[in-house]
Design a protein around this nucleic acid. Structure first.
Lengths: 340, 340
DNA sequence: CTGAAAGCGCTTACAG
DNA sequence: CTGAAAGCGCTTACAG
């Protein structure tokens, strides 16, 4: 390893002071054009890079954002919900566009989070992303608020707490999908996914679903709502339970694509044809949804926009600007699993 | 925002010097048990956290690793190869297990990389992950070597350059898959994927594929090898070209799962039945491979192990220990797309 | 427009 | 085992 040059080395070669080097490299208007060019040329020649630890320490900000992705304790090591992977991609790009670096950390919902990125000055703020039981999650949110941590999160609005959220209009998405199924003449709907405060996003989708039913004078049958978390396995188990219960239904609303895909597998194992016997829809539009057989009708959440909004909101928060919770629209993606 | 306490605040309250606080918090054996406990209790009470910028600056290492994920210019914003997403997950976990933070950056292959994480002391070393044309990639690798950057990469061994790689035995994987197809009585093989130095991993798979053919006294038909990059779209285009060429074949080896999935779609669009008319296999075992219809036979690369090996190798490199390139085995995952 | 100087909050020889 | 002091490499008032 060669020894790295410092700003003093550049100053010496350029025949100016170290202060001037520092200014020149940050394109300060205080510095003479000619001087600036000379300094920058020498810096480039020596492959000099500003030491971030020193500059961060001095200026007291890190130009870094931390992303905490928390996972449900039920998930194994192998597979993170593809929807969150897609979010991760868009957040990474959004950060980079804003000149921020991104620290990524995966955490188990059940453990204590080591969310000390901001406390240790490694990051200027935190983005929270993940899934799992909301009631567990809520406790951690309260801790973060008490510590005055600057953060934004993906998810449904939490009205009781002063938290900036970015989320989708889950209610409307649930409404749209159900309406589409009703138009295609399906009448007896099952809903697979938790419909309670344990999972506010799923709950909103369920409420939208129910509203579409009542608006169309269809019954809401409580026995056809089965709890499930957002995994293929959980959807599969719930659908098996539903089928074996003997209650009749001609459509399944999976609260997420993963749940819908698991439910689809259960139907096929029981020789129930999709969509001829039973239609099925999901939510998220993960990449897999295009590859199932039949392909899955779903509500798309725009992850690119979501990533940008999360990063923008956090940066505003950091700068002390006014920010508010935002709700994004979902869009209906019609494929083959619902007979149209 | 409350003002963050410093080590001097802790020292004052504990009635010791600031040096002692610093030692106590890092569990230095130099410090008295009782003193240490007192200091740690006070630190906890004040929610004091060591400022990483200051400690990194002073000790000249950052306990941070940077992950550069470079993408092929052909890919759009929406979808990163799921295989690399899975690697990202396992690397994140492996870093965290070793007490390192992870900076993540996505970069376009065609652009200049801003791979200055190490130069700016933000990271102690870099992990390279990605796909794209190897000949473009190679140039960047040479730059990194010239700058004395410490890095390891995922991929096939580069014999000409002093680079630590972690990769799979692509040759053997290609051999296994082909052998399996041959046992199932398929005889005329197409291979979709680049088979040249532009893509060394695919090339190794192709060579393994060819070896299995010659070992079983089957012909290698050059017109049945069609170039493709690792996307569903590229696999689809190549398979259409293959089908429309009129050459006969009864099995397709997709150089990656994404390619195989695209090829499968092309076959189905042409009313060619999988696996009755044409068998198909992929490579990687991405999550989607379990959900295609029919499900895809493939060679699994163990991403959990890969992530651990990458992180371990890089940490050894950073510590100046001896490291060498490693080759992991692949395992055959037999599903429904190849008639068995 | 430029420079000398202070100081960000730690770690680590050095001396005791 | 503990403390006083130097210094990591910058940024930024302050003075000119």
């Amino acid at each position: 390893m060669k020894v790295k040059p410092t700003s003093f080395d550049i100053a010496y070669r350029a025949g100016v002071s170290q202060s001037t080097v520092s200014r020149a490299l940050r394109n300060s208007p205080l510095v003479n054009e000619e001087t600036r060019l000379k300094v920058q040329a020498i810096a480039k020649e020596l492959n000099y890079k500003v030491d971030k630890n020193a500059s961060n320490l001095r200026s007291q900000h890190s130009a870094t954002i931390a992303l905490l992705l928390f996972e449900d304790p039920t998930s194994d090591d192998s597979l993170i919900n593809p929807f969150f992977m897609s979010m991760l991609g868009s957040i990474t790009r959004a950060c980079s566009n804003q000149g921020y670096d991104l620290l990524v950390s995966f955490q188990q919902m059940k453990n204590d989070w080591h969310a000390d990125f901001e406390d240790t000055n490694k990051a200027d703020g935190i983005i929270l992303l993940g899934y799992g039981d909301f009631l567990d999650y809520e406790e951690k949110l309260i801790q973060l608020i008490e510590q005055d941590t600057r953060f934004v999160r993906w998810g449904a609005d939490v009205k009781e707490l002063p938290i900036i959220s970015v989320g989708c209009n889950n209610f409307h998405g649930g409404y749209q999908l159900t309406e589409h199924l009703i138009k295609n003449n399906y009448k007896k709907f099952a809903f697979i996914g938790s419909a309670s405060r344990h999972s506010p996003e799923f709950f909103d989708r369920y409420l939208g679903h129910c509203k579409a039913l009542t608006d169309n004078k269809l019954n809401i049958d409580k026995v056809l709502q089965i709890d499930a978390v957002s995994t293929e396995e959980s959807g599969h188990i719930a659908a098996c339970k539903l089928i074996e219960s003997g209650h009749s239904f001609d459509a399944i609303f999976g609260a997420s694509d993963l749940i819908a895909i698991g439910a689809m597998r259960a139907l096929q194992e029981h020789d129930i044809k999709v969509p001829e016997d039973v239609a099925i829809v999901g939510f998220d539009d993960i990449p897999m949804a295009s590859f199932t057989f039949p392909t899955l009708t779903t509500a798309r959440q725009n992850t690119t926009l979501a990533g940008e909004l999360l990063v923008d909101s956090l940066l505003k928060l950091i700068k002390g600007e006014e920010v508010s919770t935002t709700l994004m629209p979902t869009s209906l993606v019609i494929r083959k699993s619902c007979g149209s």
